[in-house]
Amino acid sequence: MSDFGSFEDFIARTPKAVLPESVLLLGYYKDGTRYVPFLLDGDNRLVMQFVTPQYYARSPKVIISASAGILENAPASGTKVITNINVVNVTANPVTLKLHIAEEEATDYNVFGICGGEVAANGLFQWEGELVLGPEALWGQAGTASALYATVTVRDERDTVR
């Protein structure tokens, strides 16, 4: 005997307690104050649901060459995290690239990832890590116009659950 038939349906309408590390602890909400285990298959069980942080849709964006341009704006409030930057070179020649994490102005004092190095002809530059946006934004500058296109992966902080 169980408290519910379809587990997935039950989760959708069950109060959830948010724990660190993006784990939802699910239980039967009792007396408005406490979670108690489900009766599931004749046994008392709590359920943990592992959730993912919210990611944001992004499309490829050209990296301008005349000056450094913003590739990803700082969030209006709080912070977001960049986990991947993929820059593809659509030309048959190497193209130089600078990336910056800066609040107001991209300079040689706030470069990261690649500092004027070349993205190979028809090649890919990839940066992986956890770069915090806010109040800083992500900037980029290419050595050649219309040659480099960046796809940036942006998500909320790990402890944000939706």
Partner: peptide, 29 residues
């Protein structure tokens, strides 16, 4: 080219492969 994504005119040799690993959300993409 404005939609170029990870590879553009990228060559793959005979009996060879190109690979990429990372994380990119596909949300209406």
């Amino acid at each position: 080219t404005s939609k170029a994504f990870l590879a553009w005119d990228t060559s793959v040799g005979a009996a060879d492969l190109w690979s990429w690993e990372g994380e990119i959300p596909l949300i209406g993409r």
